[in-house]
Design a protein around this nucleic acid. Sequence first.
RNA 1: GCACUCGUAGCUCAAUUGGAUAGAGCACCUGACUACGGAUCAGGAGGUUUGGGGUUCGACUCCCUACGAGUGCACCA
Length: 597
Amino acid sequence: MNSLELDIKKKISQGLNTLFNIQLDEDKISLQPTKPEFKGSFTFVTFSITKLTNKSPEETGKLLGEYLVKDPSICSAYNIVKGFLNLEITDSAWIKTFQAIYLDKSFGKLTPKNKKIMVEYSSPNTNKPLHLGHLRNIFLGYSLSEILKTAGYEVIKANLINDRGIHICKSMIAYSQYGNSETPDTSGLKGDHLIGKYYVMFDKLYKAEIEQLIAAGNTKEEAEKKAPIMLQAQKLLVNWENGDSETIDLWKKMNQWVYDGFNSTYQKIGVDFDKFYYESDTYLLGKNIVNEGLSADVFFKKEDNSVWIDLSPEGLDQKLLLRSDGTSVYITQDLGTAELKYTEFGFEKSVYVVGNEQDYHFKVLKLILEKMNKPYASGIYHLSYGMVDLPSGKMKSREGTVVDADDLIQEMTETAAMHTKELGKIEGFSETEAQALYHKLGLGALKYFLLKVDPKKRMLFNPQESVEFQGNTGPFIQYTYARISSLLRKAKQLNIQSDNLDFNQITSLEITERETINLLKDFPAKIEEAANLFSPSLIAQYVYDLAKQYNRFYNEVSIFNESNPQLLTFRIAFSDSIASAIKKSMKLLGIEVPEKM
RNA sequence: GCACUCGUAGCUCAAUUGGAUAGAGCACCUGACUACGGAUCAGGAGGUUUGGGGUUCGACUCCCUACGAGUGCACCA
């Protein structure tokens, strides 16, 4: 908590003690920002304490208000509306608040918590390129990691690659039959796109075969089971599990192409990972845990040797953990991976950024580990994000209605280039600099668009709106930063040194300055909140409000026309601090800000 | 059928976790100084918070109910 707020709470605590003999520590006192239509900056709600004061809400507020303004260093005035005590803060207290922020070069960096958190995100299948849904996942995971780091945690960014299973075999079969040994080089296609092509091809071939079989008199179910290409894919999976060298070679070659493709996308969007897990390595883990659970009587075995857990006391169903033939299922390998992660890193928390269609899976996963008294069970958190819809409805990869990640980034960059050229403000930029700027802006627009919405909520991706660069958008915030940068360049030219600033000379503030400082002071608290709630959208919302509020100041107050040199210098320092907070906030979202645009 | 999630301005999203007259952006209308960057700013219009009940000083928020939308309920992953 910043010191201004703490000081006020202390005063209130003292006041309650002196006036009503109520013992209420400052950390139990809650203050809220005053609504703009009332005078004041902080509001104390008196309803909840009237039972202790034995006075009406108004009377309680009046007595407390009188007490607070007796000390003129913080509160200059008060007013009461019903049970709301609104407090006005002196300019000197605001200036003091700003001074502390300005002098603290690591403002917004929270003290180390000495705790480790693993954040798993992205976790794609290796049979098709990344799409818009993955982008929401990736941006969320990356941003959350940045937020947690800044909030003082040690963060391990993990990616669990789904590199085995029937879906991989599908593209392998199509490729080996129709691929003509083409490669990313010979085809000119990015590796993940090349593989995706064959995954789609498999689906077409499969459907055609099903239709033929139905025409030949089979039922739909029969046809789906008997289709030759599906049988071949299944055989390939068996070959793979048996370690057949030819199959493994093809699998390795094709997966490598996909990894190269993914890596190029990751690099382009500026995200990275500390640790990669491959399901082909971890899918057999978890059987030990099943045995452990059996001997502890947490699990039970049925007559056919399959292993189950009964979660009906928890309101869920029975859940299979091991097939009758002894092979693992999805949850088995996730149990194993959870254990592996913990033994390797010994974290306090483990966050999984995974779509909300897997809510049930993670509920079960956590419950099982809790029942087994695993020390890491309680630290498991499923950051369940909502699906991304298109105006045309749901994205479906098989129906070709997905928005491809690489294409989308390309389009955003082109749109940024178009807007920038129209406005014509970057003369003097080299072609490389211009391209770098378009990339920053296009990606900034896209990331902000996806991150500003509460992660838990399903969201609509409207392509037209996403390329708008006005209003509540990434480029709006980037623009605010670029404009302040321009101010600071000019100040430097004029040799205005904010290091020489004597804060004692500053005695009063413009309303817009006061309001902006009021927002600025909340930055560390916002980071803490975003870290606690695993919600980058809070930062996105915050930095927009901050930029918007600063723009009001910028529009109303002239800086270089100010005749008082101390005041001029103050406004430069003030602008500098806002720019710095904007840059830090945007970094938490994984967005870069330009000096010119 | 059972379970979970959601329903806020024409559209996309907020709402300090139970607080005041529910706020932003887009779109629409009106306006902004020879100043520092107009990708900006100010103003207007737009709401029975899906409907109905309940809990209390006070409800978008909590409980019940109806309606609507989505997701999950494989010896798939």
